[in-house]
Design a protein around this nucleic acid. Sequence first.
RNA 1: GCGCCCAUAGCUCAGUAGGAUAGAGCAACAGAUUUCUAAUCUGUGGGUCGUUGGUUCAAAUCCAACUGGGCGCGCCA
Length: 574
Amino acid sequence: MDTMNPLIEEMKLKLLEAIEAAGISWEEKQPPALRPCGDRRFGDYQANAAMTQAKRLGRNPRELAETVAAWWNEHHAAQATVSVAGPGFLNFLLTNETLLRALQPNCWSHLPKKVENPPVLILDYSSPNVAKSMHVGHIRSTLLGDSLSRVMRHAGWQVITDNHIGDWGTQFGKLIVGYLHQGSEERLAANPIGEMERLYKWAHEAGEHDPALQECARLELKKLQDGDSRNKALWERFRGMSQSAFDSMYGRLNISFDYTLGESFYHPMLGGVVDDLMRAGVASESEGATCVFFDDKMLQDKPFLIRKSDGAFLYSTTDLATLKYRANHFKADKIWYVTDLRQALHFQQLFATAKKWGVSVESEHIGFGSILGQDKRPLKTREGDPIKLDALLDEAVSRALAILEERRADLPSDEKKALAEVLGINSVKYSDLAQNRHLDYVFDWNKMLAFDGNTAPYVLNAYVRIQSIFRKSGESSSEKYELASPQHPRERDLMLHLLQWDDTLAQVAEEKRPHYLCFYLFYLAGLFHAFFESCPVLKSEPALKRHRLALCRMAADTLREGCGLLGLQTIEKM
RNA sequence: GCGCCCAUAGCUCAGUAGGAUAGAGCAACAGAUUUCUAAUCUGUGGGUCGUUGGUUCAAAUCCAACUGGGCGCGCCA
């Protein structure tokens, strides 16, 4: 997944040459690493190869580095000059000519990569439950999954997104009973999800004091599972109403799925899965239930239950059926499950079972931490008041609108409303994606909707300022833009950062961590703002103006593309 | 009992196959706008990287133990 700029790749090979010229035989598969300097004061790129090789051969690192640097400077000074620092760092300072060449369209672009025989990746995320509202608990999976799907498509993979919704299970018995006793067509028409939640809650609570009602729910569930036509029609109706609600939420979030194959889709396959696993000797009976046992140390005392003693199937059974279906039907090479980190053990067991079963697909659990309440306890679905996703988005949008009213009183009302919608939603998305996915975080309106610092508004503001320059320039044709050698330190900073675009994306894809992209964009926006302060564009002499306009164009394109990969929309004003 | 994750500035967090004087943002303070959007920029202060050992030229990073917090572990999803 190494997709660096061709000029940098070429420099790696030249570095390899320099190392071999110093009498070192390079035994590693990859050419020596060349990475951006952690501290710009030292140079543009750095290599640690002299130190690692010196260690391997028991030679003096500083001396070896000096030899390599001398050879490089003798042969390739036109491309970059190398200096040695500390115990043997090789610090590369690119010549301005190199920087300019590296950013030409043949070396640098935002086009998606072309990969021969790209891996087929199934991306499983979001997965809300039918008859319930989407709430904060769905945010991370939905946003991470969507961003990763965009990033991996950009990386050239064949990505298939699948929303594995919870559309089957015991809750439908209660829901049907609730509907039969309490259902209101009027309410169902006005607020389908709210009414379904009310009916479920009623049946659940009433059932606690009324065993007959519980029995009734069991019976209705059984009827549904046996194909009773009235219950099946009700179930389909509930599911349809939920799907409409999901669709409108996804529409608002600008997220879409290739497939929505929920739990019900796999239900007919479950019996076969268990039989198959039994026949293959993968599963066995234990205490009346059906389990898979594992040999390896980690899982040996943690059996995977795939059928309850009463014969009912479980989440695990559905997941096994799903995994096999994806491997066979979609010819998936990889499956990524974007879910809560607390399900880690479940996925370990699932993948271990699949392996014993002989299903060859490389599966990975892309886990993330919990969103906690102010009390540092996970926000729960069943109890308390989970914050609903649409309410959260509304709040974000209204806060964005309030800021626009204050700062942009000059804009027409309609325009402000449209901008607020995008800004609010972008802010929610960005604040989540900018987090390291492994960590829990405490939910906080102010934090989620902060418009300062490493946030969507800050990044978008850089884009907006560039658009404003373009509007004022009155020149839309790109021939007027011509990138040149950097004339000012702020230009050079910007160009060097643009050069690292490919590297950043490769890293995001490698580690499945979009927050690296957020940092890249935040940094890019900062560099642009600094450039904006000290480098006038429109008032410069023609040649400099063409150069700076080209730089603006590249920065804007990168911001737009980067935002796009996070699932954010750019705006022209704010 | 077994296992997984986390601990970095007052707060929220970065820190990418071990690298240089550990970085941002927020908050605080001091400045900058007749000029392309001040939702901006420039500067200042702020740290025994949970503790103790080990590995080496080099450890926030790797290893071991410990402390504190979270999570998971057969009939929920």
